[in-house]
Write a protein that binds this DNA or RNA. Sequence first.
DNA 1: AATGAATGAGCCTTCATTCAT
DNA 2: TATGAATGAAGGCTCATTCAT
Lengths: 207, 207, 207, 207
Amino acid sequence: MKKREVHASVKDERLIEKRREQMIKGAVTLFKEKGFHRTTTREIARAAGFSIGTLYEYIRQKEDVLYLVCDTIYDQVHIRLEQDIDTKQGTIESLKLAIHHYFKVVDDMQDEVLVMYQEAKSLSKDALPYVLNKENEMAAMFKKIIDSCVTKGELKLSEQEAELISHNIIVQGQMWAFRRWALQKLYTIDQYIELQTKVILQGVVEK
Amino acid sequence: MKKREVHASVKDERLIEKRREQMIKGAVTLFKEKGFHRTTTREIARAAGFSIGTLYEYIRQKEDVLYLVCDTIYDQVHIRLEQDIDTKQGTIESLKLAIHHYFKVVDDMQDEVLVMYQEAKSLSKDALPYVLNKENEMAAMFKKIIDSCVTKGELKLSEQEAELISHNIIVQGQMWAFRRWALQKLYTIDQYIELQTKVILQGVVEK
Amino acid sequence: MKKREVHASVKDERLIEKRREQMIKGAVTLFKEKGFHRTTTREIARAAGFSIGTLYEYIRQKEDVLYLVCDTIYDQVHIRLEQDIDTKQGTIESLKLAIHHYFKVVDDMQDEVLVMYQEAKSLSKDALPYVLNKENEMAAMFKKIIDSCVTKGELKLSEQEAELISHNIIVQGQMWAFRRWALQKLYTIDQYIELQTKVILQGVVEK
Amino acid sequence: MKKREVHASVKDERLIEKRREQMIKGAVTLFKEKGFHRTTTREIARAAGFSIGTLYEYIRQKEDVLYLVCDTIYDQVHIRLEQDIDTKQGTIESLKLAIHHYFKVVDDMQDEVLVMYQEAKSLSKDALPYVLNKENEMAAMFKKIIDSCVTKGELKLSEQEAELISHNIIVQGQMWAFRRWALQKLYTIDQYIELQTKVILQGVVEK
DNA sequence: AATGAATGAGCCTTCATTCAT
DNA sequence: TATGAATGAAGGCTCATTCAT
C-alpha cells in the first residue's frame, strides 16, 4: 500500500522533515494528555515551537497531524522490530525473542501506542485503511515467524490457529499500554513478557 | 463503587428511565458512526426523538450521555453474564461455557462494545474510574471461575497466571469487536470462540 | 396615570393578590441577589412557593414580575409616607419630619429601593413611563411641602430652586441605598439624616 | 488599586488599543439603547466593525466588554477633571469651578455616565470593587478641594459634613444624566450647575 | 387552578482555516 | 518561509413560554 502524501506548501524536503518531526513530537504529548479532539491546532503549533501559520505550511488539515502521528509511530515500531527480528529462522527461541522485542518496544513507546490506539479511529475514511493495513502487516510479521516454526515442526498449529495467535500477540502487546491501569500494577514488563510468552506457547509447542 | 448520579430536572422516575433509554439508543448509533466528539447534542436529541431542550432536561452536559451509554452497556453485559455463568462450579466445562457466553454477548453487542471501547477515554477524570472499575469487575468474574477450577485441581496455574488469563479473556472478547475488520473476515463467531478457547486452555488443563 | 393591568388567567381576585404577594416577595430577594436578568422565571416560581406553570397563570411575561415589583415598592413607600407626612403645614419642622420619615423608609426598604433603582431600566418602553411617573409623584410631594413653607415665608426659594431641592431630597434618600458601600461605613442612618437635613436646609431657611 | 488586565490573544499592543476603542464605542451605544444583558456579543462585534471571532481575540468574555466600558469612562472623566481642577488652591472659586467642570463633563458624557451607572452592577464580584474604587476616588477629589477650603477658612464644615458634601456633589452630577427625563425638561445644564452650586454652598460659606 | 414536561430560538464561545504582510 | 490577525460556521447550553393533564 502506497504511503499517503500529506501536502506541504513548503518545497524544501529537509525542512519539511524537520518541521514535521517537531510537530509530531509535540502532538503526541498533547494527544496523550487530552486526546486528538480536545487538542487545538494552535496548541500543536505552540508545542512544535512555531506559529499556527507555519503549521499550515506543512499540513492541509488538522487530521493530517493525526495521520502523521499514527504513521510515524508505526514506522518506528516497524523499524525497531525489523532490526531485531528474524522471521525465517523457525525456532521457538526466535519466536520468544520476537515477542520479547515487540513487548519491549510497546513498553518503550507506551504513550505513542496508546495515542495511536485511542485516536486512530478519528482518522477519516480515507486514511484509516492505510493505518489498519499497518496493523495487518505487524500481525503478518508474527504470522511469518509462526509459519516458519510450523514448517520446521517446532509448532503444531493449523493455519487458522496460527493466524489467531498472531493477532493475539499483537493485541497482548498493546494491552500492556491500554490496560496499564490494571496490568502495570500487577506485573513488571519482564514478568508480563515471561507470563504471556508462557501462556501463548504452552500446549502449542511440540515436545 | 457507588453509581454516579446523572442529574435530571424532570422528576418522574419512570419518564427519566424511558427518555434515557431513547437517548442512549440514539447515541450508541451515532457514536458508533461518528464518534462522541463528532456527534452534536442536537443530533443526539433528534435521534432520541425529542428536542434539544428536552435532552437537557435529562442530562447536565453532553458528557453525561457518554457516561450513561458506557454505564448501560456494562450493565447489560453484566446482567447477561450473571444469568448464565456459574463462577463456583469449578469445572473446565463451566469455564468454557463462560467464555462462550461472554464472547456471544460481545458479538451481539458489537456496536456497543466498540463504542465503549473507543469513547470511554473521553470521559472526564471524574467518571473514568467508575467505568474502569466495571472493567475490573468483569475480569474478576473470570478470575473467580478460574480460581474455582484451580481449587478443584482442574487447572494448574499460579495466582499471577490466573490473573493474566482473566484479562486475556476479557480483551480477546473485546478484540472480536475492535478488530472486526480483520477477525470477522477470517472466522465466524463460533469458530473464533472455539479457537480462542482452545488456545486459552491448551496446556493449562490438568490432564 | 392609570395603573397598568397585568393579565392573569385566574379569576379569583383574592387568590391573585395572594399569589402575587408571594411572587413579589421572592422576586425582590432574587433580584437583589442576582439582578433581574440573571434571575430565571423558574427561580421566581420556586421562591414564591409554586410551580412555573402557576407563575404564568398570574403573569403574561417575565417582565410583568419586574413591573409588579417596582409598582409594589412605590406603593409601599407612598403609603408609609402618606400616613406620616403633612404636606400643607408649611413649617420647617414638618419638612424636617418629612425628610426624616422618607429616609427612614428608604433605610427600612433598602433592598427594595436598590432593586427598583437598578432594575427599573429593564422595564419595557411600555411600563417605564408609569414607573417614572411614580418617581415624579414622590418629588412632587416634597415640592408641595416646600411650597407650603415658601408660602408661609419659612423658606426663601425660587420656583426652580424648590423643584431642584425636591429632586435632591429624593435622590439623597435613594443614595443611602445605592451608595451603601460608601455611606453606611461613614454614618448611621440617624447621623446621615441629621447631616443631610442640615446641608439641605442650611442657608435656605429664613432666619 | 492595580488595573485589572483583560486578556487579549493578539499581541500587537497598538492594535489592541485601536480595536478596544472601536469595541467600546460600539458597546456604549448599544448598552445605552438596550442595556448590557439585552445586547449580544454579535451586536457588539458588528457595531465595532469586526467579526465575532475578532471580538474574542480582544476579550475573554462578554463581561470584559462591560468592564472595559466602565473603566474607560472613568478614566476619561478623570483625565478631563485632572486637567482642569486644582485641588489645593482652597478658594470657593476653585470649588465652584470644579463643580462646574465636573457637571459639564457629565453633560458631555451623558450616555457613558448613564451606561456606567445602570450597568456597572452587572460586573462580576471580581471587577465590581475596582469600579467602586474609582467612584470613591472621584468623591475623594472633591473632598480634597473642600478640605483645602476648610483649612484656608473659606468653608466651615466638620469632617463628616465635608465627606457627605463630596458624595452629594458626585451624585448630583450623575443625577443630571440618570434623571434627565425630569431635570433636563426643567433646566439647561448651565442653569442646573448654577442652581446646584448655589444650593450646595449656601450657608456653608464663611461670610 | 395547578403542575411540570416539552419546546426551540437564541446566546456565548471556540477553533480550524485563510491570507495579507 | 514565517507570522498572527481575522473570519464565521458550528457547538454546547439556557430559559421564557406553552399546553396537555
